[in-house]
């Protein structure tokens, strides 16, 4: 039996490519909401993910040295860190957060979030586009969390983003891919990679996203919030691989009526006629 976490992609699954980088896993996972770091690390292993997201927050000035340092629990040789600008409601906050993240983590990758509303956590399209332009000009590899709107995604591509990350449903909702047709149009509209970010509730949601032709899935709550996060991480990994394999294999056309799988000739007839 292979050790947990050893990533062996099935033959035929192509790697994820963006901004000149290549990853074998098409599942990206968040580090949020885990009960403890041990569970988080086991879930990382089980998921096969190579990219993990982190948030950027003010250092608590009074409670330093409490041993709660996230970075001590993420092996930099195994995982690429993807900092986010979660919690930012303005272009200024998002840009400064991205710049601080780059300095702290020595990476040009940024999962750009400019949020427009605290209840839905839907992005502020205008702010997102403006922040994306600023950060692209500043040399970042920008991965924007966006609404599942093909026009916004096209504008983000034109702004120089390395990929787009349309939501499947609101962050943490577990509602799945609410508008697969929009995702399909996005895939047909733009050339940069499309990563579904947010909304995944269970494994089949990952498979649906990947069967549509998405390049990857990013999720957090669906694993961290599951009763058994480590087993769910494994389920998500298998679903992403299955969905991608199915996509690359070329599914059959949908037809309204049956087509027999067995030969029509030579069927046994009782009575011999």
């Amino acid at each position: 039996m292979k050790a947990q976490g050893e990533f062996v992609p099935f033959r035929g699954v192509s790697p994820l490519r963006f901004a000149g980088r290549e990853f074998l896993s098409r599942l990206l996972i968040g580090t949020g909401k885990y009960a403890d770091f041990e569970t988080m690390k086991e879930a990382f292993d089980a998921s096969g993910a190579e990219i993990v997201t982190v948030a950027i927050r003010r250092v608590p000035l009074e409670e330093r040295g409490t041993g709660k340092c996230l970075l001590d629990h993420i092996d930099p040789k195994k995982y690429t860190l993807l900092p986010n600008t979660a919690g930012c409601y303005s272009v200024k906050d998002a840009v400064l957060t991205a710049q601080l993240a780059r300095e702290a983590l020595q990476t040009d990758l940024i999962k750009l979030e400019v949020i427009g509303d605290p209840n839905t956590l839907f992005p502020d399209n205008e702010g997102l586009l403006e922040a994306a332009k600023v950060l692209v000009k500043d040399g970042f590899t920008v991965l924007p969390y966006t609404i599942d709107d093909p026009i916004v995604c096209k504008k983000l591509e034109d702004a120089g983003c390395a990929a787009v990350m349309p939501l499947g449903a609101p962050i943490g909702s577990g509602l799945g891919i609410r508008n697969p047709y929009n995702i399909q149009i996005i895939l047909e509209t733009i050339k940069i990679p499309v990563l579904v970010d947010a909304g995944v509730g269970t494994a089949s949601d990952c498979a649906i996203a990947m069967e549509l032709g998405c390049d990857a899935v990013l999720l957090n709550t669906a694993i961290a919030g599951a009763k058994n996060p480590v087993a769910m991480a494994r389920a998500m990994r298998l679903a992403v691989e299955a969905g991608r394999l199915a996509y690359e294999s070329g599914r059959i056309e949908r037809k309204l009526y049956a087509t027999a799988s067995s030969p029509l000739a030579g069927v046994v007839r009782a009575g011999g006629l």
Partner: peptide, 10 residues
């Protein structure tokens, strides 16, 4: 001043 670090998040 803003002094930051990475924390758990999605």
């Amino acid at each position: 001043f803003e002094i930051i670090t990475a924390v758990q998040g999605g």
